[in-house]
């Protein structure tokens, strides 16, 4: 199986001297393409830092990150921006939709600048929101807003979808619906889905589970059998 990301001896330190916080302390990991990978860990374990560095939102203090053959650590700001524009999508706990744009327009925000996007309507159909394309965020429920955020993230047909606590602000029913969508995106579009969560139950639907603690990888577990998103217990 081809590898999406490879990291070598990745460290990330915030601050200096005595007040320095070591968020990552030498992470070596390979993330295969096309999988759903869940990163678990307590607060401060470094899981979000790792996600951000892989997604090109942050830079490591030392070590290297490769996306396929592309060395992310060598890229300047502008090229890092291009990397995000072409290859990856993000979903956050707080949906970060533009309140002044409708669901469709929020998606179009991305399709206008992407190289090979899908039609905005199609992306919204994937997340099951075809009926509410012309609604503004203020007219959508939390789950619907998160699904628009996912549609916006997948509309560029990204190779990788990064999700940071995507269900963190949702109740169980809507949370499951969102997981369904992520599962669908992985299965239908073949996108690698990298999800950070501290809800251990979600791990069951992943191909692979990475556990972090104190800035290091403690365990990488490959699920022999995966459960369906609907079976995730909240």
């Amino acid at each position: 199986m081809p590898v999406a990301f490879t990291t070598r001896d990745l460290t990330k330190t915030y601050g200096e001297g005595r007040s320095a916080v070591h968020a990552l302390r030498g992470v070596d990991v390979e993330i295969p393409a096309g999988e759903i990978v869940v990163m678990l860990g307590a607060s401060g374990s470094g899981k979000s830092t790792l996600l951000n560095i892989l997604g090109g939102l942050d830079r490591p203090s030392s070590g290297t990150v490769h996306f396929r053959d592309l060395c992310l650590t060598d890229l300047n700001d502008a090229r890092l921006t291009r990397f995000r524009r072409q290859h990856v999508g993000f979903v956050f706990q707080f949906y970060n939709l533009m309140p002044s744009l409708t669901a469709r327009e929020n998606v179009e925000l991305v399709t206008e600048i992407a190289e090979n996007p899908m039609a905005p309507e199609e992306a919204l159909e994937v997340v099951g929101l075809k009926q509410r394309v012309d609604h503004f965020p203020s007219q959508l429920s939390g789950g619907e807003q998160q699904r628009v955020a996912i549609a916006r993230a997948i509309a560029k047909q990204p190779e990788v979808l990064f999700c940071d606590e995507p269900t963190g602000a949702l109740d169980s029913a809507t949370g499951r619906a969102v997981l369904e969508v992520l599962h669908e995106v992985n299965a239908r579009l073949g996108a690698t889905v990298l999800m950070v969560t501290h809800a251990a139950n979600i791990a069951g639907m992943a191909h692979r589970v990475i556990r972090l603690a104190d800035g290091q990888i403690r365990e990488v577990e490959v699920n022999a059998t995966r459960i369906a998103p609907a079976e995730v217990v909240w």
Partner: peptide, 12 residues
Amino acid sequence: DLASLRVMGFSK
């Protein structure tokens, strides 16, 4: 909004 746009790959 600005941060969202930057994450989506909008230039500065």
